Amino acid sequence: MNSPFQRLHHICVVVADIDRAVEFYTSVGIGPWQDYPPLTQYTELDVPSRDGFLGLKYKYADVGGIQYQLVEPGDGDSPQQQFLDTHGEGVFHLGFVVDDLAEGTAAAAGLGVRPWMTGRRPDGSGFTYFDTRARAGVTIEIRQSPTS
């Protein structure tokens, strides 16, 4: 089976207060934490609310080769804010890395998984979230990392 969901890249947790979360995780030895690159790098967006997306605040740390992401919703409506309002803090999505987003998205479609949100940078890197919440209990995502 050709699945784009083979190489786990990150786990993303929605939090109400990212600074409080970073302080806790740092106190138990998880870190150092870095700011996620500016979301304005995504020049092509298909998300429920551009303002909601651009208001998200991300930080990440490497934990044993897997990126651990925290996301705090900002002003504006976003799926992350809706998740926080409905479920409280918790795992919003699992992110998998692919070499080519177009190929990965097509492979996911072949498995019956449909895109929910997408974002692309000018170099073609970016993300595709799939609407798997009802079937998997969590959203899954694929990402293509930026070229260096």
Score class of each variant (00 low, 15 high):
K57E: 12
K57M: 11
K57A: 11
Y58R: 08
Y60D: 03
V63P: 02
G64M: 10
G65F: 01
I66Y: 07
Y68M: 09
Y68K: 01
Q69L: 12
V71Q: 03
G74Y: 07
G74M: 10
G76I: 08
G76C: 04
G76K: 02
D77N: 07
Q80H: 13
Q80R: 02
Q81C: 04
F83S: 00
T86Y: 06
T86V: 02
T86P: 00
H87I: 01
H87N: 15
G88E: 05
E89K: 06
E89F: 09
V91R: 02
V91M: 13
F92Y: 15
F96Y: 15
F96C: 03
V98T: 11
D99F: 00
D100C: 06
D100E: 12
A102N: 13
G112E: 06
V113M: 14
R114G: 03
W116F: 15
G119I: 06
P122A: 13
D123F: 12
G126A: 09
F127Y: 10
T128I: 09
T128D: 09
T128R: 04
Y129Q: 02
F130D: 00
F130T: 01
D131K: 10
T132K: 05
R133P: 00
A134L: 08
A134T: 10
A136G: 04
G137V: 02
V138G: 05
I140D: 00
R143V: 15
R143I: 15
S145I: 01
P146F: 10
T147S: 12
